[in-house]
Amino acid sequence: MAHRMLKIIPEKCTGCMQCELACSFVQTGSFQPSRSVIRVHLFDEQASYAPYTCFQCREAWCMTACPVNAIAINPATGAKVVLEATCVGCALCALACPFGTIFYNPDTKKAFKCNLCEGDPACAKACPTAAIVYEEAAAPDWMAPWSEKVHSRYLEVVAAGGE
């Protein structure tokens, strides 16, 4: 089933951080970019500004790594969400995520990540230039072809008896 996903168009980003402000406000009730799960990286010298957040990948290494099953899938949105009551704060998920988009909060001692705001993402609403949009996408996991390629390459190497 095709889910809606957060689509990020870095060319439109101006680096204003309205997404970080909105995201942190939803989570903490205050304007606190250090608790935002969408982060904008300013590549000033390359004139490029890139927001990035969890793209709810199919592999979900955070889920695989979690020893207490504290990360579940919300069937309505497809988002991988942290079950706070279950989370023991071991931060293995943050170590496992290859994209650095699940975090550990030292205040609550729990993991936190993008949950797509139950299907109404605050970052997309706050973006003044439509660099972040929440829309239906044909392939909700746009990294899948890449990961399949890497996988098959790996299998080829193993099959050939390489290291």
Partner: peptide
């Protein structure tokens, strides 16, 4: 002119990024 850039929380983005 390469692009325009915003300060923190700015929805205008008048900054000129040039080279």
């Amino acid at each position: 002119l390469l692009t325009n850039k915003a300060c923190f929380a700015c929805t205008i983005a008048c900054g000129r990024v040039t080279k």
